[in-house]
Structures are given as structure tokens and as C-alpha cells.
Amino acid sequence: MKFSNEQIKSLQLPSIDVIEYEKPDITYRKVLMYSVLIFAFVLLVGYFVVGYFAEKLLTLPILMIVMLTWSILTGLAIIFTVKSYDNLGYALRDKDILSKSGVFFKSIVIVPFNRVQHSEIEQGPIERLFGLAELTLFTAGGDDETISGLSFDKAQMLKNYITAKVAADEEE
């Protein structure tokens, strides 16, 4: 192999700043919201079950306060979920994949293809209902990177693309 080591001015490097992120499938927002709602209702049902045995919990003033807090918290959780959906994104480049997430605490993770060991597509029960899937990339760096809210076909496509890239890299 020919060895070259030309100097690279930092301005010529491809920048992770000027990337346009692709959004996850719009139905993923629904999935996220349903998950929040299901959780909230389970909590509420739990409260009533406990209240059935401890009747004090179901007296009017307490019930009012609880319902009020419950609706506010659920509302906040939904707003947060929508926000978190808005902040999700991924971007494919020739040699790596970027994925961003977080509402208050934001992060961008970049996984170079030549460090990917293998990848996996997974579907949770709610996701399966909506035909969505998530793609997880495993590297030797521990913490695995998951890209959620992809349509199943898209996930398959991404996986194939990445697998091809990994294989191409190994041949070199």
C-alpha cells in the first residue's frame, strides 16, 4: 500500500457542524406519546387500586389535588416528549454516522463505520404495531449507539448500507 501523509488544514476537514440531520419517522412521535400515556394511566390505575384499600386517598380534596398534579405532570411529560422528538436526528456520511438527541442535555455521537463491530435491528411491541424499528450499532467502545424511530424498511436499508461499508473497509 502506498503511504501518504499529506498535511490537512483544519478548515478543509469535513465539519460535523454543517450537517443536515434526518428526522425519525413522524409516527415515532406517536409511539413516544403513547408510551408516556400508557405509563401515566398505569400510575393512575395503581393509585385507584391503592385507594380502594385506603379510602382516605379517595376523599374529594385529596383526589382533586392528585388529579390536578397528575394532569400537569402528564401534560409536561407529553410536551417534553414532543420536544425530545424534535431534537432527535441522524445523519449518514460517507465514513460515519451521526446521531443527536436530548432536550436540555444535548449530545451528538459520531460512530465511524470502520469501528462498527456489528449492528442489530430491534422492534418493541408498540413499535411493531406502527411498523417502526430501531438500529443499534455496536463498537468496542462499550456504550452502544441506538437510532430509534426508523421505519422498518429504512432500518433495514441503513443496516445494509453500514454492513457494506464495514465490509468494504475490512477488505482494504
Binding site: F104, F105, K106, S107, I108, I110, R115, G141, E145
Partner: peptide, 11 residues
């Protein structure tokens, strides 16, 4: 030797 790069910010 780096495997993945993560950039993290708080508000």
C-alpha cells in the same frame, strides 16, 4: 484508537 466521539452539552 478512538472508537466513537461524543459531544455533550448542558443548558
Amino acid at each position: 484508537k478512538v472508537q466513537t466521539v461524543k459531544i455533550y452539552e448542558t443548558p
